[in-house]
Design a protein around this nucleic acid. Structure first.
Lengths: 268, 268
DNA sequence: TTAACTGTTCGCATATACGGAATAATACTC
DNA sequence: GAGTATTATTCCGTATATGCGAACAGTTAA
């Protein structure tokens, strides 16, 4: 009866996958009615309705007239996930300062499943006009195309990097993206040497960045941060020296704060 | 076989509720192992394992050695929920400015299921020491205990307010909380009259706030914003005049921006 | 009034989720 | 380093929760 090739999903809860599919669909397409949703997912209306009713009971979904949409409960949940990260709690304010000081974008990135996730971002004065965060969901990026990603990769063991590359490859984003393994390892060695990474239009054309890793007291990398902006702003000495100094200084500050906070736990 | 009183959950997907229970548990207690989770939820290990495996496939859950934790994917999802709100996108920067200008906390609040959800918050210089956001999950608050909540209630029809009160009552948070319906309606009339709301230690002792509603072009209330801080800072004229002016000015600015942006849709 | 939409409820056949026991993969003890 | 607790994970038979289609109930349009 069952088609073959269904062994991949053995031992999983199908209805949970379906529910998540519904949530993801609502995240991508905004609010939808039962009929539309049933059409998109190729399920019967009654089935979709049952899922929505269940999700509504938990507050993950709210009814908006004839449409269903994701609830702000999910937004709070997402924030609580971030707050479980000590790095996020500590680095947040510093990222704000970095953006204010440089006038650029500032990002805090961590690794999940071998890709880079931006945990936090702030926007400086000088880049107010450029709104490049157009997508509704900011998808995790491969590590080799960003300054933060390369900074992190440079701090990992060769084996870890190899295994990540095996999993995700070296997809090309712009003509400047590093797509050759050997070239990447050379670059990573240089980054590890000097302690910071450049991204010269390797992810988005017209965008540059400087990134630095953030390490815990045992030397293991916790994440990375970067300052970025359009090439019209980020050029010459400002790019190579001023911005770089601000980035490495901020990274060091965060490292010290984390070490302090783990060595002398404050309250409660 | 089935206990009675199970008719409430008729037509819902039980496994989805279970999955959400698992997610919520992980949000509250941080990362947990399969055995612990099975103990907490009173399910068998094999069952919990199957759920976790399913959630892991979607990125909602990640393995952290022997433990399972919520993945940052959820964090991105939460952010995308907020980004679906035009109010959030527009008000965000203004809230930052308000916090910077007043040196206080600044909040953006909307209503969901009759309670107030803080969509965004910023922290000013003067309140840097007071970290009152200690809870892992910031739960939705009843509307009558906050400045934003009262500002919103004051902009709703009497019937809407009544129905909200019927649902959630008037729980007391501090000795100053308004717990009487008539007193609340009097206060709401005054707020509607003057256009802004005060919160004088009605939610948290030692904390004051000024809030103002944000309305769309049809006059319907979209949400509210507030500036808040400890009584040691927020007192006298600074509380009653300066802060109030900054709050109402910001609210007006956001209203204008929203109207503009809906009247002359920019790009795409 | 009819027609064409919605979202919602119901009942039945069957796919599927559950728990318990067996297994694998760890970390501790002596 | 053998033995003993821990884990997490897999396997299966049965009970049941699930998914579909069809009927129902509201709304809007013509």
């Amino acid at each position: 009866m069952n088609d073959a090739a269904t062994r991949e999903n053995a031992g999983t809860r199908r209805s949970v996958s379906r529910a998540i599919e519904i949530v993801d669909t609502l995240a991508r397409r905004g609010s939808l009615g039962v009929t539309d949703l049933a059409g998109v997912l190729d399920l019967s209306k009654s089935t979709v309705h049952a899922y929505l009713k269940t999700l509504e009971q938990s507050g993950y979904v709210v009814r908006d007239g004839e449409k269903y949409a994701l609830g702000y409960e999910l937004s709070l949940l997402g924030e609580s996930v971030r707050n479980q990260s000590q790095l996020y709690q500590i680095a947040r304010d510093e990222i704000d300062d970095l953006a204010a000081e440089t006038g650029l974008y500032a990002h805090l990135t961590v690794v999940e499943n071998g890709r880079g996730v931006n945990l936090y971002q702030a926007k400086g004065e000088d880049v107010g006009r450029y709104d490049y965060q157009t997508e509704k969901i900011q998808r995790p990026e491969p590590l080799h195309v960003t300054a933060t990603g390369k900074a992190i990769l440079a701090s990992l063991s060769r084996e870890r990097v190899e295994s990540i590359l095996d999993r995700h490859g070296l997809p090309q984003r712009t003509p400047h993206t590093i797509t050759d393994r050997d070239a990447l390892f050379e670059e990573l060695a240089a980054i590890d040497e000097r302690g910071y990474a450049y991204n010269d239009e390797e992810e988005v054309e017209g965008f540059r960045a400087v990134g630095a890793p953030i390490c815990g007291q045992d030397g293991e990398v916790l994440g990375a941060l970067s300052a970025s902006g359009p090439t019209s702003i980020l050029r010459g000495d400002f790019f190579r020296e001023e911005t770089r100094d601000a980035v490495t200084r901020t990274a060091n500050l965060i490292e010290v704060t984390i070490t302090m906070s783990n060595t002398f736990p404050s309250n409660s």
